[in-house]
Design a protein around this nucleic acid. Structure first.
Lengths: 196, 196
DNA sequence: TTGACGAAGTTAACACTGTTAAGTATCGTC
DNA sequence: GACGATACTTAACAGTGTTAACTTCGTCAA
């Protein structure tokens, strides 16, 4: 049959998915919605993606790839590993607030979609955070110690700030970047101080 | 009609709900499941609870009431407000790890169930944290400053540690209390140090 | 030129979900 | 004894993800 969806079927589906996704909210995405958006039956999507979860994962993957790239770039650009650690906090917050849906799906409730930090994506980025902490320790910027634990603390601090901002309803929620950034920065600074 | 469910219908439903809830996981709870568990049709539940969300909220409420009570007790028992701040971290982690489902529903993805920190429950407990920080400042244990912001930072730190432990799949997830407690304690200590 | 093959769609259907509407039985009360 | 509230029932609606069976088309080899 003539492909009804233009050349890059996977791409078109992904685009439509992201659109519905961003408009109706995560919990409002259905395969039938996405399919209707591109004028195709719902089951057609299964020709290109194994499941709704797979589609969701794909929709997030590109965002997270960009995220990882920014982290790497930031690390490279920083004068010292310690500066990198500080800068990464800002990048983390910016990404999360710019792509709250992505962050929600992949980081706040990954197990709902049977996703989790991408096996080929995220452990790597956590590992690179560990490496960065080790570099700080090696350079004498941080006291020697369990780098993995330190990285975990830094991650937890950032995740705590950002996930409260994204996932909490009511007065606690706040997606304006400035206060969130400031809070994240303060926390990161506190953690770093405890590791000096 | 003779009440089919024993005297305390709401209570029995709640009990069954919590059971299914704990067994099948949060995302596996359906009204029909719960109803079947107590030998009643699904629609009977609507006589006692407005919606699934209301039932879920009720199922969490008692847990959170207990949580709030523990926090208060801890605060009262501590020698100084600063000690209270420290002790609360442990209570927070213990509650979250003892009731991961409750924590998940109420704190990690509250908006999915249209719940959120209970309007009559949680802002209060956040407010009491703010009050506690203010007490620390008044007693000279912490440097004067924005108590609300400080409380927010402490909460974010605890939430970050705990929600990663609960909601992350794979190697990151870890529900053994000790490392999580230690990490939370370290973070709280770091935040406190930054507020001295 | 014909025929097989495979890819990309289709509709119908299954087993679910939360929730509402309408009907029925039983109780306490006047 | 009639009345009304209470507690339940079944039937149904509109929606979900997903599978199975079927059609339709373009391609490529014999």
């Amino acid at each position: 049959m003539t492909p009804f969806i233009d050349g890059d079927a996977r791409g078109s589906i992904l685009e439509a998915a992201s659109a519905v996704f961003a408009e109706k909210g995560i919990d409002g995405v259905s395969m039938r919605h996405i399919a209707r958006e591109i004028g195709v039956s719902a089951t057609a999507l299964y020709r290109h993606y194994d499941s709704k979860n797979a589609l969701l994962a794909a929709a997030c993957k590109e965002g997270f790839a960009q995220f990882g790239a920014q982290i790497e770039e930031t690390t490279r650009a920083a004068a010292t590993p310690l500066d990198a650690l500080r800068d990464i906090g800002g990048v983390y917050v910016d990404f999360a607030l710019d792509h709250p849906m992505h962050y929600d799906v992949m980081m706040i409730r990954p197990h709902q979609w049977a996703l989790g930090p991408n096996p080929e994506q995220d452990p790597e980025s956590f590992a690179s955070l560990v490496t960065l902490v080790e570099a700080c320790q090696a350079a004498g910027h941080l006291r020697p110690g369990d780098a993995r634990e330190a990285a975990h603390q830094l991650w937890a601090a950032l995740h705590g700030v950002v996930s409260l901002a994204i996932a909490m309803p009511g007065e606690i929620r706040g997606l304006e970047p400035e206060p969130v950034r400031a809070r994240a920065s303060a926390l990161v600074e506190a953690v770093i101080a405890s590791l000096l």
